[in-house]
């Protein structure tokens, strides 16, 4: 009974990871990934590893989404300028 919270969070980790793999579009995948970062941080907390959980929160909640979304924007903008260059 005392481990119920660990079981719940482990199931959530498995479910979010599967959802992240099953999502195809990179920007939507980044949304699922940010959720998974938070779930992983909660897992580390219930396993009594707060230092690791802090690292995961610091990196996963804002930094990783920002890096991914900036890369997606660059790739999309590049595709757009190439299209315009081809048309004109």
């Amino acid at each position: 009974m005392a481990d119920a919270v660990i079981v719940v969070v482990l199931l959530l980790v498995a479910a979010t990871a599967t959802a992240a793999v099953a999502t195809r579009d990179p920007s939507r995948q980044a949304l699922v990934l940010s959720l998974q970062g938070v779930v992983l941080a909660v897992l580390f907390t219930v396993l009594q590893a707060p230092d690791v959980a802090l690292s995961q929160l610091a990196v996963g909640s804002a930094l990783t989404p920002l890096l991914i979304m900036l890369s997606v924007r660059k790739v999309r903008r590049r595709a757009r300028t190439t299209d315009e260059g081809g048309d004109g």
Binding site: L63, L67, L70, S71, K74, G85
Partner: peptide
């Protein structure tokens, strides 16, 4: 992290490819 994000932001926001290259 600041330097890393600066490079990513430069690429995503400021740097444009030359047209027709």
């Amino acid at each position: 992290v600041v330097v890393l994000l600066a490079r990513f932001l430069d690429q995503a926001v400021e740097i444009e490819e030359e047209q027709g290259s």
